[in-house]
C-alpha cells in the first residue's frame, strides 16, 4: 500500500511559485517548528544536501532556505525510484519578535536546525513582587 510509505515529498510548484534557477523539480522540505523560552527552532529535513550546498537568506521578513541536490547518477540502471531527487526550497515569514541578526543554523545527518532568537522584548520575564 502506498499509504504505508513515508509521505512523498511535496513539489514546491504545488504550494508556491518558487524561483527556478535550475532544471528539475524542487521540493518543499518537511519542517517542524517549535518554541523554546528564548528562541524558535526550525528543523528541516534536507536529505542528500551537503553542508556547503545549503543556502539560507533573510530579507525583509522572509527567511528562505535552499538546498542543492545532485541529480541521480546516469550510469546506473534504476529499478525503483520512489523518491524525488531535486533541490529544496522553502520560505518562512518571520515576525517582529525575532532578532533576525542573530539567526543561526547548523546541519547534521541531513537535518538543518535554525535557531531564531526572540528579541529581548518578547522573552518571558519573571517579575519580582516586593512586599510593601
Amino acid at each position: 500500500m502506498v499509504s504505508d510509505l513515508v509521505n512523498e515529498k511535496r513539489d514546491t510548484a504545488t504550494v508556491t511559485r518558487a524561483e527556478r534557477t535550475r532544471e528539475g523539480r524542487t521540493y518543499l522540505p518537511y519542517c517542524d517548528i517549535l518554541e523554546r523560552e528564548n528562541e524558535l527552532l526550525i528543523h528541516a529535513d534536507l536529505p542528500g544536501v551537503r553542508t556547503e550546498d545549503i543556502d539560507i537568506n533573510y530579507e525583509r521578513g522572509l527567511l528562505t532556505l535552499q538546498g542543492r541536490v545532485d541529480p541521480r547518477r546516469e550510469d546506473r540502471r534504476f529499478l525503483m525510484r520512489e523518491y524525488g531527487v531535486g533541490d529544496y526550497h522553502r520560505s518562512f515569514e518571520v515576525g517582529e519578535g525575532i532578532d533576525a541578526s542573530r539567526i543561526e543554523a547548523e546541519v547534521k545527518d541531513g537535518v538543518l536546525t535554525l535557531h531564531l532568537p526572540k528579541t529581548e522584548s518578547i522573552r518571558p520575564r519573571k517579575i519580582a513582587v516586593r512586599s510593601a
Binding site: D4, L5, R76, F78, V111
Partner: peptide
C-alpha cells in the same frame, strides 16, 4: 515489502553491484 512505515527507496544496478538508497534524515 511495504509494511509499517517504509522509507522510500532507490534501487539501482551497476555491473557488479546492487545499490539501494533511502532518504532517512536525522537517524
Amino acid at each position: 515489502g511495504r509494511f509499517a512505515f517504509g522509507p522510500r527507496l532507490d534501487l539501482a544496478e551497476s555491473d557488479n553491484d546492487v545499490i539501494v538508497k533511502a532518504e532517512l534524515p536525522g537517524i
